[in-house]
Write a protein that binds this DNA or RNA. Structure first.
Lengths: 335, 335
DNA sequence: TTGTAGGCGTTATCAG
DNA sequence: CTGATAACGCCTACAA
């Protein structure tokens, strides 16, 4: 920067004024500065800037795994929103082993990050998030922590679950099983609640619907489908409500290997609308979440927070049921 | 830091010595410092550190899109390798619109990033990469720029392509078409070369194999499959060699909609082994690339570069053919 | 073994 | 409108 100042025959402060237009500069000298910048290919040292401004123009994105396309989509939304503000996004994939408490908190403590977008997804411990939020603003995506209202951007899982369940019930299904997500997760609770509402709405007793608790991963869908469907045909559920697509796909795999036809013998629905869900056979009936939007909005909310703007982004984003091929009326002869 | 020094009744330099063990400190005073750190929850300001050390302990990861699982997997490898070194990863998804030259170069210029791992994938302009590499070390993943040997971590696409093509030929296929990737891309060239080698190896003339050039995206697979297969059955290819899985999936979609059975009427192979490729029906025969490894190795190479270690990671990583259901012998009666 | 002081590249304050 | 100058928080000779 000193070089630029010399080259332009002005003082460093003038250079600074020009670069941030933070002060009045005579047009002629401003041009001299701009020229010098170009000639010398100067660009300001961002570390020094952060040091002085006490802000890093960088946010963190905590995500359990990128290979899950839902997370990847949210991440893209986050990235877009951040780069629209000229802010960098640091990718944090918490190590499965080890104390998340520490590793997360370290992120914000060094002041390299101004805030964090937290995608808890497969059930990180609330403790580690709370710890993190002591050191700076944190916005949760797709999850909430009941009792601690951290700012969160989520969507109306409950409504989506209710609607997709209603669709299944409307087809005539009465023997239904739920493959739920980890019960500690808000989304899993919401979806379950939605399913139960629909069941109640159809005049059935929600308590009679078997709930199998999975972990949102494909393998658990397979295992639980086995568990749900391994019984005499007359008692076997004719529809499986899966709390996410990955488990639904696992269930589909199970059915394929067990010779159970979908949707002829059993209907299956998922939740998330992963891109691959419309590629598999049968195409999965599911609930679309605005994943990209959620990421984008989370960043917006984070910046509002950083500027004390008190933006309550608490309104839930809408979900939309995607009707596809994995649902059909129950086989003839089932009650 | 001054606070810590006061609390521990030592000088700031002692604190610094302790924190980096960059100087001898009496055990008793060291403990006092460590205590103070804990009590005050002190952690060093990383911006100041970077400023002084002229290195940010941060690398950039440029990736065309995260929703592509191949990229996501590489990204996870990058993340792992970086966090093993306590280095942050900044996610850069170049804006489709706008000058990549500028936006990329900006990354390294501000010295917030020590280096960049560049995942060119769907064909970013070499110019923008070259521009970037003027300002700091850049390691390419999965691509090379012929003529400019930038350090690159890639895998042996050519061999994989040759082997999978040979498998198809071994099944008896003789009317074959290739759905290739963008001809500017090294991977596309390599794969095409591999296919041609296999064809020549089977005693056929490679120049008689029709080459349809796609863009590695699903839609182009669909369109080109249409083009390749819309002809009298007697002349229609019995096998499609697709240069990546996405296009193979597109081709599969086309076949499904056109009532062409895979693999009974036409065999299809892909390249990449995306997780979803074994989920679709029929399960796709394809070539696995060590995506995670490539990401990991790229970071290793980048750090070697940063330390002038001259690590030539030019050895190509191995690929492995995944035999699955989308290939069968050609229909009876085809030459 | 410990402390003091200077500087890393910017920005902001305050005289001119 | 412009230019010295003092921080920002840390590291590191160098001196004690």
């Amino acid at each position: 920067m000193k070089d630029v100042a010399e080259h332009a025959r002005v003082s460093v402060s003038t250079v600074s004024y020009v670069l941030n237009d933070s002060g009045p500069v005579a047009p002629e000298r401003r041009n001299r500065v701009l020229d010098a910048v170009r000639v010398l290919e100067y660009s300001p040292n961002e570390s020094a800037r952060s040091l002085k401004r006490r802000s890093a123009s960088t946010i963190g994105l905590v995500v359990p795994e990128l290979t899950n396309q839902f997370f990847a989509t949210v991440a893209e939304g986050v990235q877009k929103a951040a780069s629209a503000r000229d802010v960098l996004v640091v990718l944090c994939v918490p190590d499965a082993t080890g104390q998340p408490e520490e590793s997360h908190a370290k992120l914000l403590r060094g002041q390299r990050l101004d805030g964090v977008v937290f995608l808890s997804g497969t059930g990180t411990l609330p403790a580690s998030i709370l710890e993190l939020s002591r050191f700076g603003p944190v916005v949760l995506v797709d999850e909430q922590i009941p009792g601690f209202d951290l700012p969160a951007v989520a969507c109306d899982s409950r409504r989506g679950a209710r609607e997709v369940a209603r669709h299944v019930l409307d087809q005539g299904h009465r023997r239904i099983a739920v493959i739920s997500g980890p019960s500690a997760l808000w989304t899993a609770q919401q979806r379950l609640a939605g399913y139960r509402e629909a069941v109640a709405g159809a005049g059935m007793d929600p308590d009679e619907v078997p709930i199998l608790v999975g972990d949102y991963r494909q393998a658990s869908g397979t295992a639980l489908a086995d568990q749900a469907l391994s019984r005499p045909v007359a008692q076997r559920p004719t529809a499986l409500l899966c709390a996410n697509d990955l488990m639904a796909i696992g269930a589909l795999e199970y059915c394929k290997s067990a010779g159970i036809r979908v949707p002829e013998d059993v209907s299956i629905v998922g939740f998330d609308d992963l891109p691959l869900s419309s590629l598999i056979t049968p195409r999965l009936t599911t609930v679309r979440q605005p994943a990209h939007d959620m990421g984008y909005k989370a960043v917006t909310a984070l910046f509002d927070l950083l500027e004390n703007k008190e933006s309550e982004l608490l309104g839930l984003l809408p979900t939309t049921v995607q009707l596809r091929d994995s649902v059909a009326p129950p086989p003839a002869g089932s009650p």
